[in-house]
Simulated scan of single mutants.
Amino acid sequence: MTSAELEAARSGDEEAFASLVAPFRRELHLHCYRITGSVDDADDVLQEVLLAAWKGLPGFAGRSSLRTWLYRIATTRSLNALREQSRRPRSAPVPPFEPPTPNDRFDQPHLQPYPDVLVDELDPAVQAVARESVELAFVVALQRMPPRQAAVLILCDVLDFTVAEAAEMLAVGPTAAKGLLQRARSARHSPRSIASGARHHDLARKFADAFSRDDVDSVLELLTDQCWLAMPPASELYVGRQAVGNFLRASAAGRPGGNYALVAVTAGGRPAFVCYLQGRARGLLVIEPTQTGDKIASIMRFLDDGLHRHFGMPDFLD
């Protein structure tokens, strides 16, 4: 950023403003996602952030860096979006079959996985941290925290802002911010690495092959005893191999339109598949391998027929 570019943007030069914020767009989008847990919401919030920055730039005094100023706006707008989420609950599609009774509940109807193709657009120096911080289990843990606790944890432990900087972004005192951070750290889920390479890919291949053939027995052989299946925005949660198997069998028997075709992508550093039914995109599957990579610890089936577009996949397959 040059002073001339900043002054031009302050004077209403849209090209200068676009150049000014371009280096931060992708990381701001990722920040909005971590707080909201939704790629769709992150898209919307980022547009609000850029509009607010455009309108507020004449008042930017330069007491902090432009990046810090933008993160303050993004944090505020993301927290506002979380409050909006609670006022507009997201409904789940009605299944075309009678599902078995779930044995637990999943409480994150707005959750969506973050596409690795978007992380690839970040500066290589920050990609490793970014990949860890979009791991689904970590994002779920953030969503279950009080929003300001999650925000201060992200700002300090993921983005390396100081407690004082985080306090200013959240419009709280440093002591309050420190307390929020301590409580968030005590509840945090640390991102974990999983096995990669041949074993990782072999597990994903076996799962995709069995799932696309509705070979439930072969799918179950790949699961741990305590594997669970969640289907945001639905609240049903099936825990344990038997419960997961009961749901998969009911789905295979009652689903109109034949079998799914799965197209491999990657979401939050995990094997994922866009699901196509009769050639039309019908949501996304993400599997969580165990630490060793030889079993599956969880399956998340996202019932959002527009989610594939974030991964650059077509609406229809030939």
Rank of each mutant, 00 (worst) to 15 (best):
D214P: 01
R26M: 13
A8V: 05
V286K: 05
L50N: 02
A252F: 06
I154Q: 10
E27N: 11
K206N: 12
G240N: 02
S3A: 15
G37N: 03
A195C: 13
G12L: 09
I154E: 14
A125V: 15
V172M: 08
V126I: 15
A177W: 07
H308M: 05
A184E: 06
L317E: 07
A167C: 05
W228E: 07
G197W: 10
V263H: 08
H201I: 01
G173H: 13
S251W: 07
A261W: 12
F161A: 03
P23Y: 02
R34W: 12
I296Y: 04
V265H: 08
F211R: 12
Q47M: 12
P58F: 04
A198H: 11
C227H: 05
T36W: 05
S196N: 12
P89Y: 00
Q242V: 11
G173N: 00
A4T: 14
V49E: 07
Q278M: 03
G37I: 04
Y276E: 01
L79N: 07
A250M: 06
G306M: 06
R185L: 01
V139C: 08
R63H: 14
A195I: 05
G306K: 08
K55T: 13
P23R: 03
V244M: 10
A74I: 09
A74D: 03
E132C: 00
R282G: 01
E288F: 08
G268Q: 06
I154W: 06
A74E: 08
A92N: 03
S11A: 15
H31W: 09
L70T: 11
M169N: 02
L155M: 04
G257S: 05
S86T: 10
L51F: 09
R185P: 04
S218D: 15
N103H: 12
V163P: 04
L111V: 07
Q127S: 00
D305P: 06
